[in-house]
Lab assay of single mutants.
Amino acid sequence: TPAEQLLSKCPWKEYKSDSGKPYYYNSQTKESRWAKPKELEDLEGYQNTIV
């Protein structure tokens, strides 16, 4: 779907730490963070409005 294509192009991906806590990693900037990036939230919100 178009929304899945947008998400696949987003540099932010969700991973799980050893303790199972989700964290987010940007493959372009090599940045990681615990809080979900706004860019990823926006894309997921867009995906939910299409489905």
Rank of each mutant, 00 (worst) to 15 (best):
Thr29Met: 03
Trp34Cys: 11
Glu31Ser: 01
Glu44Gln: 07
Pro2Gln: 12
Ser19Phe: 06
Tyr46Pro: 14
Gly20Val: 00
Leu6Val: 15
Lys21Ser: 05
Gln5His: 11
Tyr25Ser: 04
Pro2Cys: 06
Lys36His: 04
Glu44Gly: 10
Ala35Leu: 12
Leu43Ser: 13
Trp34Glu: 13
Arg33Tyr: 05
Asp42Asn: 14
Pro37Ser: 00
Cys10Asp: 11
Gln28Glu: 05
Asp18Arg: 07
Asn48Asp: 04
Cys10Thr: 14
Ser19Lys: 12
Glu39Ser: 10
Pro22His: 07
Gln5Asp: 12
Asp18Pro: 13
Gln28Pro: 00
Cys10Gln: 15
Ala35Met: 11
Cys10Glu: 03
Asp18Tyr: 08
Gln47Ser: 05
Lys36Glu: 02
Ile50Ser: 14
Lys16Arg: 08
Ser27Cys: 13
Leu6Gly: 15
Lys16His: 12
Asp42Arg: 12
Tyr46Thr: 13
Val51Phe: 15
Lys38His: 00
Pro22Trp: 03
Trp12Leu: 02
Thr1Lys: 01
Arg33Ile: 05
Gly45Trp: 04
Lys36Gly: 02
Gly20Pro: 11
Lys21Ile: 15
Lys16Pro: 05
Thr49Val: 05
Lys38Met: 06
Tyr25Thr: 04
Tyr24Gln: 02
Tyr15Val: 14
Asp42Met: 10
Trp34Asn: 14
Tyr24Met: 01
Lys13Pro: 00
Thr49Trp: 05
Arg33Trp: 05
Ser32Pro: 09
Ala3Cys: 02
Leu6Tyr: 04
Leu6Arg: 15
Pro37Lys: 01
Pro2Met: 15
Asp42Trp: 03
Glu44Trp: 04
Lys38Thr: 07
Ser17Val: 02
Tyr25Ile: 03
Lys30Leu: 06
Leu7Ile: 13
Lys36Ser: 03
Cys10Lys: 06
Lys21Phe: 07
Ser8Asn: 09
Lys30Asn: 09
Glu44Ile: 06
Tyr46Ile: 11
Leu40Glu: 14
Lys36Gln: 04
Leu6Met: 15
Glu41Ile: 06
Ser17Lys: 04
Asn26His: 00
Thr1Ile: 10
Leu43Ala: 11
Ala35Gln: 13
Thr29Val: 01
Lys30His: 10
Ala3Thr: 13
Lys13Ile: 07
Pro22Asn: 08
Leu6Asn: 10
Glu14Ile: 14
Glu31Asp: 05
Lys13Ala: 13
Ser17Gly: 08
Lys9Glu: 09
Val51Arg: 15
Lys21His: 05
Gly45Leu: 12
Tyr15Arg: 12
Asn48Thr: 10
Asn26Arg: 00
Asp18Phe: 07
Trp34His: 11
Lys38Glu: 09
Ala3Pro: 11
Lys13Val: 10
Lys30Tyr: 07
Pro11Lys: 01
Gln5Met: 09
Tyr25Gly: 02
Pro22Gln: 10
Gly20Tyr: 01
Pro11Met: 12
Pro2Gly: 15
Leu43Asn: 09
Leu6Ile: 10
Ala3Gly: 09
Gln28Tyr: 07
Gly45Ile: 10
Lys38Gln: 09
Leu40Thr: 07
Tyr23Phe: 09
Glu31Ile: 02
Tyr46Asn: 01
Asp42Lys: 07
Leu40Met: 11
Lys21Ala: 09
Glu14Lys: 04
Pro11Ser: 09
Gln47Phe: 02
Pro22Ala: 09
Gly45Asp: 13
Pro37Ala: 05
Thr49Ile: 04
Leu43Val: 11
Gly45Met: 11
Arg33Leu: 12
Glu31Leu: 01
Thr1Ser: 05
Glu39Thr: 05
Leu43Tyr: 14
Lys13Thr: 15
Lys9Phe: 07
Cys10Asn: 09
Arg33Glu: 02
Leu7Glu: 13
Ser19Asp: 08
Lys21Gln: 10
Thr1Gly: 01
Lys9Tyr: 13
Ser19Gln: 13
Ala3Leu: 12
Gln28Cys: 06
Ser32Met: 14
Leu7Lys: 02
Thr49Arg: 14
Lys9Val: 05
Tyr23His: 02
Asn26Glu: 00
Ile50Trp: 08
Glu41Trp: 05
Arg33Asp: 03
Ser27Ile: 14
Gln28His: 08
Tyr46Arg: 12
Lys36Cys: 03
Ser32His: 11
Ser27Phe: 05
Pro11Tyr: 13
Lys16Thr: 08
Lys38Gly: 07
Tyr46Met: 15
Thr49Glu: 11
Glu14Ser: 04
Glu14Cys: 12
Gln47Asp: 06
Lys9Cys: 03
Lys13Asn: 10
Asp42Cys: 01
Gly20His: 06
Gln47Val: 06
Lys21Glu: 08
Tyr23Leu: 04
Cys10Tyr: 08
Ala35Pro: 01
Gln5Arg: 11
Tyr15Leu: 11
Lys38Phe: 04
Glu31His: 02
Lys21Arg: 12
Pro11Leu: 07
Pro2Arg: 10
Leu40Ile: 07
Thr29Ser: 04
Glu4Lys: 02
Pro2Asn: 15
Tyr24His: 02
Asp18Gly: 08
Thr29Trp: 00
Pro37Met: 01
Leu43Met: 13
Glu4His: 10
Ser17Glu: 07
Tyr23Gln: 03
Leu6Pro: 12
Lys21Asp: 06
Ile50Asp: 11
Thr29Asp: 02
Glu41Lys: 04
Glu14Leu: 06
Lys9Asn: 08
Pro11Arg: 05
Lys36Phe: 03
Asp18Ser: 14
Ser27Lys: 13
Pro2Leu: 08
Ser32Glu: 07
Ser19Gly: 11
Glu39Leu: 03
Ser17Met: 08
Ser19Cys: 08
Glu44Phe: 00
Lys30Phe: 04
Glu4Asn: 15
Tyr23Val: 10
Ile50Tyr: 13
Gln47Lys: 05
Tyr25His: 11
Lys16Phe: 09
Asn48Phe: 01
Asp18Asn: 10
Glu41Met: 10
Glu39Met: 08
Ala35Trp: 04
Gln28Phe: 06
Leu7Ala: 14
Leu40Ala: 06
Leu40His: 03
Glu41Leu: 08
Ala35Ser: 13
Asp18Ala: 08
Asn48Pro: 09
Arg33Cys: 13
Tyr24Ser: 01
Lys16Ser: 07
Tyr15Pro: 00
Asn48Met: 01
Tyr24Val: 00
Pro37Asn: 01
Glu4Phe: 02
Leu43Gln: 11
Pro11Glu: 00
Leu43Trp: 15
Ser8Phe: 06
Leu7Ser: 15
Asp18Ile: 12
Ser27Thr: 12
Cys10Phe: 10
Tyr25Trp: 05
Gly45Gln: 09
Thr49Lys: 15
Ser27Gly: 04
Lys30Glu: 06
Asn26Lys: 04
Trp34Pro: 08
Tyr23Thr: 03
Lys9Gln: 13
Lys21Pro: 07
Gln5Phe: 10
Pro37Tyr: 00
Trp12Thr: 03
Gly45Asn: 14
Gln47Leu: 08
Ser19Val: 06
Ser32Phe: 13
Pro22Thr: 11
Glu44Ser: 07
Leu7Pro: 06
Thr49Asn: 06
Tyr24Asn: 02
Tyr24Asp: 03
Tyr46Ala: 14
Gln28Arg: 09
Asp42Gln: 15
Asn26Leu: 00
Gln5Asn: 14
Glu44Thr: 06
Glu31Lys: 03
Glu4Ser: 04
Ala3Met: 15
Ser8Ala: 14
Tyr15Thr: 06
Trp12Pro: 09
Glu4Tyr: 00
Ile50Val: 15
Ser17Trp: 00
Trp34Tyr: 11
Gly20Met: 06
Pro2Ile: 15
Leu40Lys: 03
Leu6Asp: 15
Pro22Tyr: 07
Glu44Arg: 08
Gln28Ser: 06
Thr29Lys: 01
Ser32Arg: 14
Lys9His: 07
